[in-house]
Amino acid sequence: MRERHINAILLGGLLATALAAWGLDQPFTITLATKVAILALAGVGLNITLGLGGMISLGHAAFFGIGGYAMGILASHAQNYTPLMEAPLLIEGTNSMPVIWLVAIAASALAALVIGALSLRTTGAYFIMVTLAFGQMLYYFAISWPAYGGEDGLSIYVRNGFPGLNTLDPIQFFGLCFVLLCLVLLFVARLGRAPFGLALTAARQVPARVEAVGLSPYRLQLVAFVLSGAITGLAGALFADLNRFVSPAMFSWQTSGEIMVFVILGGVARLCGPVAGAALFILLEHWLGALSEFWHIYLGALLLIVVLFARGGLIGQIAGREAAHD
């Protein structure tokens, strides 16, 4: 089966699940489908760095958390009717999703620019450790920031609004997240086929050859890292809105690891790999979690099997090696 057919089945399946749950009045299932869409979005962000660029970042929770806190901070000021900054540079809070998304994207992109500019001067294990260190720095910063809940996190009582939609209705919020996921997937698909994406793939394989044709591997990787961070930040803002809660856990290395697990389970460098991975992860969490609180053991075993025997992930096993530049 060709990869594009698998992608269509995956996205169609996710949409059909949410619609069926809506028809059967199962809001919890819609929430699960929304969670899959949002976590898949975070994985799609990481997949630019990991799949296209070959950079193993263990710090993507930093961007996920920044997106989450961008939502939390703006919404908490809006719900408390207190400005974020006092006059003369007056900045008000907001509960408008589009504004929050823009702030989340801008803040996480800026953070990715700074983190990427420093960490991309290293490679291999050092790159992993530097990105991990940045993530943990932000985690501890969030813990020690009492103004926004510190270790306890920050609750938002009402979900933020989107013009023309009732975002408290689970199916409408799912629709919003699903459309965003599809738009980002479309963007990433075009990115991968564009000269930028091809050069990034080439830089992953042999940086010196890319330099010889006039492209800077560092610049290519930095742009990819920033795009990746921005998408993961957007996912963080949506995740915070889904839960109406942000906490330092969004910055933790476990979150970085989970996002990476989605990508590996579904298929590194596969466009919809993170969608398949996130769906499988949520299903396992839901089903196995009901059987045993130690469900992570089974997840670990599955991850081992995928890494050892199915390196293209779920999508790679079905589609073969045709599409990915691996």
Partner: peptide, 17 residues
């Protein structure tokens, strides 16, 4: 020293100016 895992067309357009 072509980019081994890119196609012929991709090799050409990746470097194009």
């Amino acid at each position: 020293r072509c980019f081994a895992n890119l196609t012929v067309r991709e090799n050409l357009i990746a470097a194009a100016r």
